[in-house]
Each structure stands twice: as C-alpha cells, then as structure tokens.
Amino acid sequence: MNKLIRPSTLIWLVLMLLTVATYAIGEAGVGGTAMMLTVLGIAVLKVQMVANYFMELRHTRWLWRGIVLGWLVSVTGLIAIAYLTTIK
C-alpha cells in the first residue's frame, strides 16, 4: 500500500474527532435546537461512515445501503421531531 494513510485508519481518526466534538458540545452546556441538530447531524455522519466503510456496504448494491440510510433518517428524523415539539 503506497498511500500515506490507510483509508480505514483515516475513517477511524475522523470518527474519533467527531466523538470529541460531540463531547465538547455537551460540555459547553448549551442546549436548544441548533445544538440538537448539530449533535444529531454528527451522529448521522458517523453512522454512515461506520456502515459504508467499516461494514463495507459501499461496495454493495444500493438496496443494502438504502436499508441502513432509511432506518437512520427515520430514527433521527423522529427524534428531531420529538425534540422540536418541546420548543415553545
């Protein structure tokens, strides 16, 4: 492998950084819609990275990636809606 860094190592590093970002947002003590959407957005990105790169779904038919993406969008979308209903 003549690449500077293994693709899987790069994905791992980005996943670690995104986790630290989520933690930092939590520690900042801020709440509200923007925080909720940012943290959920980071989670969506991370799940997609794990599914497509770690679980290697990117080399498979769209069907398999679609099932995971459909699940992800439904679950995080409903979570976001539940939170938005509490904003007065």
Partner: peptide, 19 residues
C-alpha cells in the same frame, strides 16, 4: 461488532448529550 458500535453512536448523543 460494527452494529454494536453503530448503535452506541446514536445512543450516546441521545441519552448523554442532547437536552
């Protein structure tokens, strides 16, 4: 094993962070 990781990636922000 990746699925166990994937679930925690949603569980952690949902239960511990978002408020």
């Amino acid at each position: 094993w990746h699925m166990v990781d994937l679930l925690w990636i949603i569980l952690f922000p949902l239960i511990y962070v978002i408020h």
